[in-house]
Design a protein around this nucleic acid. Structure first.
Lengths: 386, 386
DNA sequence: TTGAAAGCGCTAACAG
DNA sequence: CTGTTAGCGCTTTCAA
């Protein structure tokens, strides 16, 4: 018995004692004045109790009406919904969560919301989540595993699952957290954790193919961070493609995955230039172009460069960047679908990563190799050596 | 009385019959078989009851230990914390929220997470929120008021407050929602809603000042969307500055606040060029530069252009863009501080917007006006008229 | 199909 | 300073 409900009704004389489910004892104290607004409890947002009373049914019936439609007579349901609407009733997510542990919240972890690469991932995740009635909590680790852990720590207890859009944490930490909530990783393969990744090997292969067709040989790969899983995949793919396509590939790095990293790569490249380079990502490619351009090297006349990711800025720089477009929105959406499946019970954890296709976007930073290929160690014409 | 608690206690003989608060009636029904694991309730994450029992105190004391440190003896607290740690107890946010309506969640609404302008705002909001122990739920309206309303609708019941980082909803809708939760708007003044905005008039004034010093006259303003509050502010500031600085300003627009908008603006500008233009934002400025450059106009030799916002790409384009830097991170942080203050009770709603300072970042898209200013209606030298 | 009643885990008076 | 006791609003057996 909910004492709290009865008492207030009784304590408020002007409310009269509408048979609020009062016991016989209560019933004896005959009401003397009619009530206008029979509001049950303290003022505030209406609850199922308010709706129940107004509709003349039990609270549990109201609850069922919203949580298990179908388990209640359609007419009663209709009436209840009507009353609820009139009262402006909205089910309280916290109360529901308390008894069901179902919060309709998902966490999305990204290392840096400022990094263009994540925009579309975020959009894809949000869209797919919204479609399933889920809201997403964005956890921005700011490239710090401490921040990431803290933020995740805070979000963990309220979310039903986690999408790891590139994490800065160790595999061990990740697995630790995966024990507490369903999780799926994007762009990173962690043993035991389901993941979805872009087709890295095909991406670099297409880039190399494109460059090869233009007559470039050899090609320089401006490598990403040592710890980067994606970099490992791309380099591996590049070596394989190199064999198949019969165009040599040199590796130069590791480099920070930023414009600054690209500048650093350009400086190194100037010491032993090639007619084409493939950047670890667009930022690196952009930094490369900027620097070599400032040194009098023309793109793509002297050197062709292709980036990776196809971020927003790729089409803004001069010349517009030829790059491998990763389907980031699809990546995010796929991750959420997988996650939701896990949440719904079917726990297909582990297994090989889901691979989504990529494609090469040809713009103006690539062109035919210069007529005469530079001798090894010799800068292409026009390049001031260092 | 929590039946669930008492029964288990009695069932465990090895616990002796410590007067756990059992009634006489309960005490009589002597247990016949011993139990090994005297686990209180259903298996799962530990609750304050588990901690209380293990520490030999009342649940409420455990609760206080975590929710109102200081209101409990430091030694007892220490012991409780120790036990809690051992048990791996973590306070359940949903349960807490249910009784306090304090969720430690904030909503941040942005029209398009893909728009570079919002990155720093998001970071500022996240940082400030995290510092106060709050987690933020990102609501991306995707430039659609329907989506925005729906997402907000979903988040509303669980957040304690809302930061509107540029909304697509009507003032009326906004005010409607503000009735339900504390709110503060960024970059938009809505009557009755506290807001924080960048110093638009000072920003455009600095831009015009800069251009004036370089000898430009008159200057063209590539206007933003008609409905944009910011555009209104900027144009107004420009007209005032125009008077004070004695340099004429022409308005050209409205334009979409995008690269495409800039291209459209450039086409119009070519019909009656000036030696300098100020874009509504960086994207517009970038689009402008792209187009005029493709038509043989040199920047900044033939025309100087200044953008607005100082987005990431501003420093990536060629030439790097001179632009007015808006302190977006500070904007976000200030908004959260204000919001938190409201949530904590002091409701300083309404009032004039909080204005945060901006500054001009000079890069290479601006330079001295061409020696001979073009006669009105005449294209600067080198510009092919249409 | 509906109702009654017991919690979900925590906080909050109110006593002691 | 600590324990008792009601709930917060909703879901969920268990009966009817």
């Amino acid at each position: 018995m909910r004492a709290g409900e009865v008492a207030p009704g009784l304590d408020a004389p002007e409310e009269g004692n509408a048979t609020t489910g009062a016991t016989e004892a209560d019933a004896v104290s005959v009401p003397e004045e009619p009530v206008t607004t029979g509001r049950p409890r303290r003022r505030g947002v209406p609850t199922i109790y308010d709706v129940a009373e107004a509709a003349g049914v039990a609270p549990s019936t109201v609850s069922r009406t919203f949580s298990r439609p179908g388990r209640v007579n359609s007419e009663t349901a209709a009436r209840i919904r009507q009353v609820a609407a009139d009262l402006g009733y909205r089910t309280n997510p916290m109360a529901r969560a308390l008894s069901t542990t179902h919060t309709s919240l998902l966490a999305l972890v990204v290392p840096d919301i400022t990094n263009p690469v994540y925009f579309e991932i975020i959009n894809g995740v949000q869209d797919e989540a919204a479609e399933a009635g889920y809201t997403v909590v964005l956890v921005d680790s700011r490239e710090s595993d401490r921040r990431e852990r803290e933020a995740l720590e805070r979000a963990l207890p309220i979310v039903e699952g986690i999408v790891l859009g590139t994490s800065r944490m160790s595999d061990a930490s990740i697995r630790m957290i995966a024990k507490q909530r369903p999780m799926v990783a994007i762009n990173r393969a962690v043993r035991e954790i389901p993941s979805v990744v872009p087709d890295n090997s095909r991406g670099v292969r297409r880039a190399l193919e494109h460059l090869g067709e233009l007559g470039h040989e050899p090609v320089t790969y401006l490598a990403g961070p040592e710890a980067s899983w994606a970099d490992g995949m791309r380099w591996r793919g590049l070596r394989e493609a190199s064999l198949e396509l019969a165009v040599h590939v040199r590796r130069l790095g590791p480099l920070a995955p930023t414009v600054a990293g690209g500048v650093a790569g350009a400086k190194a490249w100037l010491q032993s230039p090639t007619t084409a380079v493939i950047g670890f990502n667009d930022l690196v490619a952009i930094g490369f172009i900027r620097y070599v351009t400032s040194r009098g090297v023309r793109v793509p006349e002297d050197v062709s460069v292709v980036g990776y990711d196809n971020i927003f800025a790729a089409d803004l720089v001069t010349p517009p960047l030829t790059t491998v477009a990763t389907p980031r929105r699809a990546l995010g959406a796929a991750a959420v679908r997988n996650l939701l499946a896990q949440i719904k019970g079917a726990h297909p954890r582990g297994g090989p990563p889901v691979v989504v296709p990529v494609k090469l976007v040809e713009r103006q930073s690539t062109g035919p190799a210069p007529a005469q290929a530079p001798a090894a160690g010799t800068p292409p014409r026009g390049i001031p050596v260092r």
